[in-house]
Simulated scan of single mutants.
Amino acid sequence: MMVDISIIIPCYNESDNVIPLVKALHTVLHDRQWEVIFVDDNSPDGTIHVVRKLAAHDQHVRGLLRIGRRGLSSAVIEGILSSSAPLIAVMDGDLQHDETCLPIMIEALMKNTCDIIVASRHIEGGNSTGLANKWRHFLSLQGIRIAKKLGAPVNDPMSGFFAARRDWFEPIAPALRGRGFKILMETLLAAPKPIRVMETPMVFRERLHGESKLGPYVMIEFILMVIENTFKKAWLCFTKNKHSS
Protein backbone atom coordinates (compact mmCIF):
# COMPACT_ATOMS: atom_id res chain seq x y z
CA MET A 1 0.00 0.00 0.00
CA MET A 2 1.37 3.39 -1.01
CA VAL A 3 0.97 5.83 1.87
CA ASP A 4 1.19 9.61 2.22
CA ILE A 5 2.14 9.57 5.88
CA SER A 6 3.50 7.17 8.48
CA ILE A 7 2.48 7.84 12.08
CA ILE A 8 5.15 6.59 14.48
CA ILE A 9 3.93 5.51 17.92
CA PRO A 10 6.69 4.63 20.42
CA CYS A 11 5.06 2.53 23.11
CA TYR A 12 5.63 0.63 26.32
CA ASN A 13 2.72 -0.97 28.19
CA GLU A 14 0.03 0.65 26.05
CA SER A 15 -2.03 -2.46 25.21
CA ASP A 16 -5.33 -0.83 26.25
CA ASN A 17 -4.70 2.19 24.02
CA VAL A 18 -3.83 0.53 20.70
CA ILE A 19 -7.35 -0.18 19.42
CA PRO A 20 -8.89 3.19 20.45
CA LEU A 21 -5.95 5.02 18.89
CA VAL A 22 -6.24 3.18 15.57
CA LYS A 23 -10.00 3.84 15.50
CA ALA A 24 -9.34 7.55 16.08
CA LEU A 25 -6.80 7.61 13.22
CA HIS A 26 -9.30 5.94 10.88
CA THR A 27 -11.81 8.66 11.69
CA VAL A 28 -9.52 11.64 11.21
CA LEU A 29 -7.55 10.28 8.21
CA HIS A 30 -10.40 8.72 6.28
CA ASP A 31 -9.48 10.64 3.12
CA ARG A 32 -5.71 9.96 3.30
CA GLN A 33 -3.41 7.05 2.57
CA TRP A 34 -1.69 6.35 5.87
CA GLU A 35 -0.08 3.79 8.11
CA VAL A 36 0.64 3.64 11.81
CA ILE A 37 3.83 2.00 13.07
CA PHE A 38 3.80 0.95 16.71
CA VAL A 39 7.39 0.65 17.94
CA ASP A 40 7.14 -1.50 21.05
CA ASP A 41 9.99 -2.02 23.52
CA ASN A 42 8.93 -5.57 24.39
CA SER A 43 6.15 -4.42 26.72
CA PRO A 44 5.31 -6.98 29.43
CA ASP A 45 1.61 -6.19 29.03
CA GLY A 46 1.62 -7.68 25.52
CA THR A 47 1.23 -4.46 23.54
CA ILE A 48 2.84 -6.01 20.44
CA HIS A 49 0.34 -8.90 20.47
CA VAL A 50 -2.56 -6.44 20.34
CA VAL A 51 -0.84 -4.64 17.46
CA ARG A 52 -0.23 -7.87 15.54
CA LYS A 53 -3.79 -9.07 16.02
CA LEU A 54 -5.08 -5.76 14.68
CA ALA A 55 -2.57 -5.72 11.80
CA ALA A 56 -3.80 -9.15 10.66
CA HIS A 57 -6.98 -7.53 9.31
CA ASP A 58 -6.04 -3.84 9.02
CA GLN A 59 -3.46 -2.95 6.37
CA HIS A 60 -2.93 0.46 7.99
CA VAL A 61 -1.28 -1.09 11.07
CA ARG A 62 2.31 -2.23 11.47
CA GLY A 63 4.29 -3.34 14.50
CA LEU A 64 8.02 -3.11 15.17
CA LEU A 65 9.22 -5.10 18.20
CA ARG A 66 12.48 -4.07 19.85
CA ILE A 67 14.24 -6.48 22.21
CA GLY A 68 17.17 -5.55 24.44
CA ARG A 69 16.90 -1.80 24.01
CA ARG A 70 14.59 0.84 25.41
CA GLY A 71 13.80 4.51 25.03
CA LEU A 72 11.26 6.74 23.34
CA SER A 73 13.70 8.76 21.24
CA SER A 74 15.53 5.78 19.78
CA ALA A 75 12.18 4.07 19.12
CA VAL A 76 11.02 7.13 17.17
CA ILE A 77 14.21 7.18 15.08
CA GLU A 78 13.91 3.47 14.22
CA GLY A 79 10.24 3.86 13.38
CA ILE A 80 10.86 6.78 11.04
CA LEU A 81 13.74 5.01 9.29
CA SER A 82 11.55 1.93 8.78
CA SER A 83 9.02 4.00 6.86
CA SER A 84 8.97 4.80 3.17
CA ALA A 85 6.22 7.44 3.31
CA PRO A 86 7.20 10.98 2.27
CA LEU A 87 5.71 12.40 5.47
CA ILE A 88 6.12 11.21 9.04
CA ALA A 89 4.35 12.11 12.26
CA VAL A 90 5.25 11.20 15.83
CA MET A 91 2.63 10.73 18.53
CA ASP A 92 2.48 9.17 21.98
CA GLY A 93 0.53 5.96 22.40
CA ASP A 94 -1.45 7.07 25.45
CA LEU A 95 -4.31 8.95 23.67
CA GLN A 96 -3.26 12.28 25.21
CA HIS A 97 -2.28 13.75 21.85
CA ASP A 98 -5.16 15.16 19.81
CA GLU A 99 -5.20 13.26 16.51
CA THR A 100 -7.42 15.93 14.92
CA CYS A 101 -4.25 18.03 14.53
CA LEU A 102 -2.98 15.60 11.89
CA PRO A 103 -4.90 16.92 8.83
CA ILE A 104 -3.59 20.44 9.49
CA MET A 105 -0.05 19.12 9.87
CA ILE A 106 -0.26 17.03 6.69
CA GLU A 107 -1.61 19.96 4.69
CA ALA A 108 1.18 22.29 5.83
CA LEU A 109 3.88 19.76 4.88
CA MET A 110 2.31 18.94 1.52
CA LYS A 111 2.26 22.65 0.68
CA ASN A 112 5.95 22.81 1.73
CA THR A 113 5.31 25.77 4.01
CA CYS A 114 7.53 24.31 6.76
CA ASP A 115 10.18 21.70 7.49
CA ILE A 116 8.54 20.58 10.71
CA ILE A 117 5.21 21.32 12.37
CA VAL A 118 4.61 20.92 16.09
CA ALA A 119 1.33 20.32 17.92
CA SER A 120 1.76 22.90 20.66
CA ARG A 121 0.16 23.24 24.07
CA HIS A 122 1.61 26.71 24.52
CA ILE A 123 0.11 28.82 21.76
CA GLU A 124 -3.36 30.34 21.52
CA GLY A 125 -5.95 27.57 21.35
CA GLY A 126 -3.78 24.95 23.04
CA ASN A 127 -3.46 23.90 26.67
CA SER A 128 -1.75 21.35 28.86
CA THR A 129 -4.54 20.48 31.29
CA GLY A 130 -3.92 16.77 30.69
CA LEU A 131 -0.61 16.88 32.58
CA ALA A 132 -1.44 14.72 35.56
CA ASN A 133 0.10 16.68 38.43
CA LYS A 134 2.18 19.67 39.51
CA TRP A 135 5.40 17.68 39.09
CA ARG A 136 4.74 17.06 35.39
CA HIS A 137 3.80 20.72 34.90
CA PHE A 138 7.05 21.75 36.62
CA LEU A 139 9.21 19.45 34.48
CA SER A 140 7.54 20.60 31.29
CA LEU A 141 7.87 24.31 32.07
CA GLN A 142 11.50 23.99 33.17
CA GLY A 143 12.33 22.14 29.98
CA ILE A 144 10.68 24.85 27.91
CA ARG A 145 12.66 27.59 29.72
CA ILE A 146 15.95 25.79 29.10
CA ALA A 147 15.13 25.18 25.45
CA LYS A 148 14.12 28.79 24.81
CA LYS A 149 17.33 30.09 26.37
CA LEU A 150 19.15 28.00 23.77
CA GLY A 151 17.13 29.63 21.02
CA ALA A 152 14.70 26.81 20.24
CA PRO A 153 12.48 28.17 17.43
CA VAL A 154 9.25 26.79 18.91
CA ASN A 155 6.93 27.56 21.83
CA ASP A 156 6.56 23.93 22.91
CA PRO A 157 9.93 22.19 22.44
CA MET A 158 8.85 19.52 24.96
CA SER A 159 5.96 18.39 22.74
CA GLY A 160 5.97 14.75 21.72
CA PHE A 161 3.64 15.34 18.77
CA PHE A 162 5.14 16.67 15.55
CA ALA A 163 5.35 15.95 11.83
CA ALA A 164 8.00 16.46 9.17
CA ARG A 165 9.09 15.35 5.73
CA ARG A 166 11.09 12.14 5.93
CA ASP A 167 13.74 13.44 3.49
CA TRP A 168 14.32 16.38 5.88
CA PHE A 169 14.64 14.16 8.96
CA GLU A 170 16.84 11.38 7.53
CA PRO A 171 19.99 13.49 7.03
CA ILE A 172 19.68 14.66 10.65
CA ALA A 173 19.25 11.14 12.07
CA PRO A 174 22.99 10.22 12.18
CA ALA A 175 23.61 13.20 14.49
CA LEU A 176 20.93 12.09 16.98
CA ARG A 177 21.91 10.09 20.04
CA GLY A 178 18.35 8.94 20.66
CA ARG A 179 18.51 9.17 24.43
CA GLY A 180 15.63 10.02 26.72
CA PHE A 181 12.18 11.17 25.75
CA LYS A 182 12.51 14.55 24.05
CA ILE A 183 13.26 13.67 20.43
CA LEU A 184 11.75 16.92 19.11
CA MET A 185 14.20 19.09 21.02
CA GLU A 186 17.17 16.97 19.98
CA THR A 187 16.06 17.15 16.35
CA LEU A 188 15.71 20.94 16.49
CA LEU A 189 19.17 21.29 18.01
CA ALA A 190 20.77 18.99 15.45
CA ALA A 191 18.98 20.30 12.35
CA PRO A 192 20.71 22.70 9.91
CA LYS A 193 19.65 26.31 10.38
CA PRO A 194 17.46 28.07 9.60
CA ILE A 195 14.56 25.72 10.32
CA ARG A 196 11.13 26.49 8.96
CA VAL A 197 8.90 25.68 11.94
CA MET A 198 5.13 25.90 12.25
CA GLU A 199 2.95 25.24 15.28
CA THR A 200 -0.68 24.24 15.52
CA PRO A 201 -2.60 24.39 18.80
CA MET A 202 -3.23 21.15 20.69
CA VAL A 203 -5.32 20.40 23.75
CA PHE A 204 -3.34 17.86 25.76
CA ARG A 205 -5.83 15.29 27.04
CA GLU A 206 -5.87 13.28 30.25
CA ARG A 207 -4.49 9.75 30.18
CA LEU A 208 -7.23 7.10 30.39
CA HIS A 209 -5.15 3.90 30.58
CA GLY A 210 -1.65 3.02 31.76
CA GLU A 211 0.85 5.13 33.65
CA SER A 212 2.93 8.17 32.75
CA LYS A 213 6.63 7.54 32.03
CA LEU A 214 7.60 11.11 32.94
CA GLY A 215 9.80 11.27 36.02
CA PRO A 216 12.92 13.03 37.35
CA TYR A 217 15.21 10.97 35.08
CA VAL A 218 13.45 12.45 32.06
CA MET A 219 14.61 15.94 33.03
CA ILE A 220 18.12 14.65 33.73
CA GLU A 221 18.25 13.02 30.28
CA PHE A 222 16.91 16.23 28.75
CA ILE A 223 19.57 18.40 30.42
CA LEU A 224 22.34 15.99 29.39
CA MET A 225 21.06 16.04 25.82
CA VAL A 226 21.03 19.86 25.78
CA ILE A 227 24.58 20.04 27.18
CA GLU A 228 25.87 17.44 24.74
CA ASN A 229 24.36 19.16 21.71
CA THR A 230 25.51 22.59 22.88
CA PHE A 231 29.12 21.44 23.22
CA LYS A 232 28.91 19.58 19.91
CA LYS A 233 27.82 22.74 18.09
CA ALA A 234 30.49 24.80 19.85
CA TRP A 235 33.16 22.29 18.81
CA LEU A 236 31.97 22.25 15.20
CA CYS A 237 32.01 26.06 15.14
CA PHE A 238 35.53 26.11 16.63
CA THR A 239 36.93 23.58 14.10
CA LYS A 240 35.26 25.41 11.22
CA ASN A 241 36.80 28.74 12.25
CA LYS A 242 40.17 27.07 12.79
CA HIS A 243 40.20 25.57 9.30
CA SER A 244 39.11 28.82 7.69
CA SER A 245 41.84 30.90 9.40
Rank of each mutant, 00 (worst) to 15 (best):
G68S: 02
D94V: 12
L102Q: 03
E99Q: 15
M91Q: 02
I88E: 01
S73K: 07
L95K: 03
D98E: 13
A89H: 00
L87P: 02
I67V: 15
S83R: 04
L72H: 05
A85M: 08
A85K: 01
H97Q: 13
A75F: 00
I80Y: 11
R69S: 14
S84P: 04
D94M: 02
T100P: 06
P86A: 06
T100H: 09
L81S: 08
E99Y: 07
G71S: 09
D98F: 06
S82F: 09
Q96E: 15
E99F: 11
G71R: 02
E99V: 15
A89C: 10
Q96F: 04
I67T: 14
L72T: 11
L72W: 07
D92T: 10
Q96H: 00
E78Q: 10
S84G: 07
A85T: 05
A75E: 02
R69Y: 05
S73P: 01
S73F: 04
T100M: 14
H97E: 12
D92L: 12
I88Q: 02
M91W: 06
A75W: 01
L87A: 02
I77A: 01
E78G: 07
R69L: 13
A89L: 08
P86M: 01
D94S: 01
Q96K: 15
L95N: 11
I80N: 06
M91K: 05
L87E: 00
A75R: 03
D98S: 06
S74N: 12
D94G: 05
I80P: 00
G68P: 09
Q96D: 07
A85C: 00
D98P: 03
I67G: 08
I77V: 10
G68H: 04
V76D: 00
D92G: 15
L72E: 12
M91I: 13
I67M: 11
T100R: 14
A85L: 03
V90G: 00
G79P: 08
E78P: 06
T100E: 12
L72K: 08
G79H: 03
S84I: 14
E78Y: 04
